[in-house]
Amino acid sequence: MRSAGILARQVRYENLSFWRNPPAAFFTIVFPLMFLVIFNLIFGDSTVELPGGTAGISTFYVPGIIALSVIGACYTNVAMGVAFSREQGLLKRTRGTPLPTWALLGGKVLHAVAIGVVLVVVVAAAGVLFYDVAVPTRTLPAFVLTLIIGSATFSALGLAVTAAVPNADAAPAIVNASILPLLFVSDVFIPLDDAPTWLTTFADIFPVRHFSLALQASFNPFERGAGLEPAHLGVMAVWMVASLLVATRFFRWESRR
């Protein structure tokens, strides 16, 4: 109970700080929406092959951009946030206080997840209102589970990648280069219907495609079951555990010069 209180307090202060920078907060929230609008403008008339039938392209883009939202909020923001806090000595300063490490990092991660949830709601609402996409109802439990495992996996990855980030100057390059190419080959920005098999095989090594496909199942109008994708969730869980091990083993409190 006391642990939950410590964590809640950290999240509260992270949140206080987040909203004190309105331009940053605004663009964080609008960023995925812009992708949703742009991709629908470009590919609006095309269709996508889903398990069970053919659907309009927005049925592909709503779960795709939901994946982007969670990855951006958790992976990118956690990695950048930790890299910058480390550079500024904030991590080292806090390490000298009685606050446990898990609470410091847990606070950052939980706040990132909360922002991710806001983005998911915004994107899903836009999908329903403007793109005629049905809200998952029967698949809602599977959708929520996928989001939980997805946020956990990409937050853990975000923490793990900071081990490879020597300092804040290198953070944007490393964090973006490690995720952007994957977004293109993982059914997030573009459907991989016509892609060569080796490319999808390659993409399947990483958690991004498993996440977007699992989300797709929740929005698939031809889905007759619960939309649960244990195989995809399993791969993500493996990445989560591996990332946590790397993060715990190689975490650094100070930037390298």
């Binding site: 000595g89 904030l90 000298g96």
Partner: peptide, 29 residues
């Protein structure tokens, strides 16, 4: 760590918290 205080040579705090909030945050530890 509960019994010492450390002022490092260079370390920042969250720039978007006020002075009072920052003190409050650390007092809570």
């Amino acid at each position: 760590r509960e019994r010492i205080g450390i002022v490092l040579q260079s370390a920042s705090v969250d720039p978007y918290l006020s002075v009072g909030e920052t003190i409050e945050l650390f007092r809570g530890y």
